[in-house]
């Protein structure tokens, strides 16, 4: 799953989809995940990276990541 190349991300956690004109905001962890996705990291890489950095149960994060990905998809932010 890859974030569309033309999605503009900002340090403040804003996203702008130039294809649709929609703007989004994310929390810091959401921004981090999107940046990893932009670098074409696999789901497993993302899970590893986040679980390394944050105090979170792996299974719980996998579930949250699925839900987050689903939303990105619904917002047409994924390729």
């Amino acid at each position: 799953m890859r974030v569309r190349k033309n999605i503009a991300t900002s340090d403040e956690g804003f996203l702008f989809n130039p294809t649709t004109g929609d703007s989004f905001s994310t929390n810091p962890i959401g921004t981090e995940i999107i940046l990893l996705m932009k670098k074409d990291r696999t789901s497993k890489d993302i899970v590893d990276a986040i679980c390394e950095k944050y105090d979170v149960d792996r299974a719980l994060f996998e579930r949250d990541l699925d839900d987050f990905t689903l939303q990105l998809k619904e917002f047409s932010l994924l390729e």
């Binding site: 900002s10 403040e12 956690g13 804003f14 702008f16 703007s23 905001s25």
Partner: peptide, 11 residues
């Protein structure tokens, strides 16, 4: 600019 809209919306 879109940034102004994002700033007021988010902050």
């Amino acid at each position: 600019n879109i940034r102004e809209f994002q700033m007021i919306s988010a902050n």
